[in-house]
């Protein structure tokens, strides 16, 4: 506007480089290894589903913001892209387009925009969409193409390791017998297993985690506390009865635990504020996941666990506040007591 005039604004006059678009970009970059792995595993189907989910999410958010809420479109912050990617990561790579559309509409429409858009949603939008699809389209959502077998869209479908485990246990087999039919742990780690698009490879997801930690986008608290809890709990049950419960490593490397711990549970909006709160949150998700996996009727429980703990976030926040400066000054109290004594002692 006016040339040569100085700008005046309240302090501070410098700002961190880590702004919302930067963070969103960072998260997207962190998800790319996992995406590449699923492309390697499932071929074009993965690309197709991911692109469709992103497209639907962005378009729906734009439409809702512009025409329903009548405010500037909020798609440029990149959060809709992440929701789309996460939704795609949570579904099989051969999902028909109309189901993806429904999932995206639920994720963005009900999960996010109905609460007022970015920052106001109590539940992780991608998980809301995913769980809606899981309950509405159980057959489509649980026929996963077999890993490594397909570069075409209509491949052979099969169950996930967790599904095989659950079915085997129902049929009365013991865990060691079932384990014989499974791929090796190295295969699990690198993602050569059946399952949803992005949850395949623990290795790829850990790469993403490293990147996000390096960029200081997230802290270690949620993933570590969640994984440690799962490791500990499944370990205890495994030690109690190895014929009924699978070993902890199997649990960690299969299903959506890695994806959930790194990308889903760490969502800023739906996780607690303080590091202490994050630890409580992670432990809660871990416990619920293990309980659902071991004793529930679903083979996998990460999505439900995260959604349930999302609901507890406000409560966790109010119990895990940062200690206020000066509030816990034990030293100060001790000092004052000493001082009072001194004052009394002096005549």
């Amino acid at each position: 506007m006016s040339e040569g005039l100085l700008t005046v604004s309240p302090s501070p006059h410098i700002h961190t480089d880590l702004t919302v678009p930067q963070i969103m970009r960072g998260v997207i970059i962190a998800m790319i290894p996992a995406l590449l792995f699923s492309v390697y595993n499932f071929g074009l189907g993965a690309v197709y589903v991911t692109l469709l989910a992103i497209l639907f999410c962005v378009v729906i958010e734009y439409a809702i913001a512009r025409y329903l809420l009548k405010r500037p479109a909020s798609i440029y912050d990149g959060s809709a892209i992440i929701t789309g990617m996460l939704l795609a990561f949570n579904v099989p790579s051969n999902l028909p387009w109309h189901i993806i559309l429904i999932g995206s509409a639920v994720a963005i429409g009900i999960g996010k925009m109905s609460f007022g858009g970015l920052g106001n949603n109590p539940f992780n939008p991608a998980l809301v969409g995913r769980v809606f699809l899981l309950l509405s389209f159980p057959v489509e959502m649980t026929s996963w193409p077999t890993a490594g077998a397909t570069w075409s869209l209509d491949g052979v479908t099969g169950a996930t390791p967790l599904g095989i485990l659950k079915d085997g246990l129902r049929a009365g087999d013991s865990v060691p017998d079932i384990m014989n039919q499974m791929p090796s742990y190295t295969d699990f780690f690198f993602g050569l297993q059946g399952g949803s698009l992005g949850e395949m490879s623990a290795f790829a997801i850990l790469l993403g985690l490293m990147y996000m930690l390096y960029r200081k986008i997230i802290t270690w608290h949620i993933p570590v506390s969640m994984l440690a809890t799962i490791l500990l709990m499944t370990g205890i049950f495994w030690l109690l009865d190895p014929t009924r419960f699978a070993n902890p490593l199997f649990h960690l490397l299969t299903g959506g635990i890695m994806l959930g711990a790194v990308f889903m549970a760490t969502d800023y909006v739906t996780s607690p504020f303080t590091h202490r709160g994050m630890l409580v949150f992670g432990v809660g998700i871990g416990v619920l996941t293990v309980v659902i996996r071991l004793f529930g009727s679903y083979p996998e429980g990460v999505s439900f666990a995260i959604l349930i703990m999302n609901a507890f976030v406000p409560l966790i926040n109010s119990y895990t506040k940062q200690p206020r400066y000066g509030s816990k000054s034990q030293r100060h109290k001790a000092y004052q007591e000493k001082l009072e004594k001194e004052v009394k002692a002096t005549p």
Binding site: S2, L5, L6, T7, V8, P10
Partner: peptide, 14 residues
């Protein structure tokens, strides 16, 4: 005439 450009939150009170 303006003598500077205000660039804080758009609120007279602030």
């Amino acid at each position: 005439k303006k003598t500077n450009i205000y660039d804080g939150e758009s609120s007279c009170k602030i």
